[in-house]
C-alpha cells in the first residue's frame, strides 16, 4: 500500500480545482455579562453551576463529599485533598468505581457552555470520562464569548490530548428522548471562581 500514497496524491493533484483563497476568521465579538451567558448555556446543556468567590468554597464541597465516603480524585493542587498519585497511572478497570473527579478547566465558552480541559490538567485521560460525576473549576476571567476567541486562547497541541466538555454525557438515540448520562459522567458541576 506504499503505492497507494503516491497514487492518491497524484490523482488529487490531477483532479483538484483551481486555487481558492483561505479566508481570515473574524472574532465575531459580543459584549455583555459573559458569566451569566455562560451559566445560561450550562443550564441548557444539563450542567449545574455555582459562582464562588474563593476556592475555599470548592474545598468545602470536596470535603463534604469525602465525608460522605465518595471515591474521588482531585487533580487540582490548589484544593485540599490533592490525591493524584494513587490514580495517576490507573487503568480503566481500576478506575471503574471512581465516583467523582475534580479537574481544572482552562477556558470556558459563554455561547455554548463548553470548557477546554487539557491533558496536563486532567492528569489521566480517563478521569473526565470514567467518573460518574465530573466537577470542573474555572476562573471567571477565563470565560470568553465564543469558539473563535477560545481557539485563540488555547494551543490545541500543547498536550497530547485536550477536549471541550459541554455538559454531562448524553444520548437521545431511543426515540429522541434525551437521557442524561450515556457512557461518560451522569453529572457535570461547574464552579466559577471570580
Amino acid at each position: 500500500m506504499s503505492n497507494s500514497r503516491e497514487n492518491i496524491l497524484a490523482a488529487i493533484n490531477a483532479n483538484k480545482p483551481a486555487p481558492v483563497e483561505l479566508p481570515e476568521i473574524p472574532l465575531f465579538e459580543r459584549k455583555g455579562d459573559l458569566v451569566n451567558v455562560f451559566i445560561g448555556a450550562l443550564e441548557f446543556i444539563g450542567a449545574t453551576s455555582v459562582k464562588v468567590t474563593s476556592l475555599s468554597e470548592v474545598d468545602e464541597y470536596l470535603e463534604s463529599l469525602q465525608q460522605a465516603g465518595t471515591r474521588l480524585v482531585n487533580t487540582i493542587a490548589e484544593l485540599n485533598g490533592y490525591n493524584i498519585n494513587a490514580y495517576k497511572k490507573a487503568n480503566a478497570s481500576e478506575l471503574e468505581a471512581l465516583d467523582t473527579a475534580f479537574i481544572k478547566g482552562r477556558v470556558g465558552v459563554a455561547e455554548n457552555g463548553a470548557i477546554w480541559v487539557s491533558e496536563s490538567d486532567m492528569v489521566n485521560r480517563l478521569f473526565p470520562f470514567i467518573c460518574r460525576k465530573l466537577v470542573l473549576v474555572i476562573n471567571a476571567k477565563d470565560i470568553v464569548y465564543n469558539m473563535h476567541e477560545a481557539y485563540r486562547r488555547i494551543q490545541v497541541d500543547e498536550d497530547g490530548y485536550g477536549t471541550f466538555i459541554a455538559g454531562p454525557s448524553k444520548t437521545a438515540d431511543i426515540e429522541q428522548s434525551l437521557v442524561v448520562g450515556a457512557h461518560g459522567p451522569l453529572e457535570l458541576k461547574v464552579f466559577i471562581v471570580s
Binding site: I45, G113, R125, D157, Y161, F164, A166, G167
Partner: peptide
C-alpha cells in the same frame, strides 16, 4: 440544534 456536542476531543499524541 445543540450549541455544541458534549465532547469535541482533540487527539494529537498517543498517551
Amino acid at each position: 440544534g445543540q450549541p455544541i456536542t458534549t465532547y469535541s476531543s482533540h487527539f494529537h499524541r498517543p498517551k
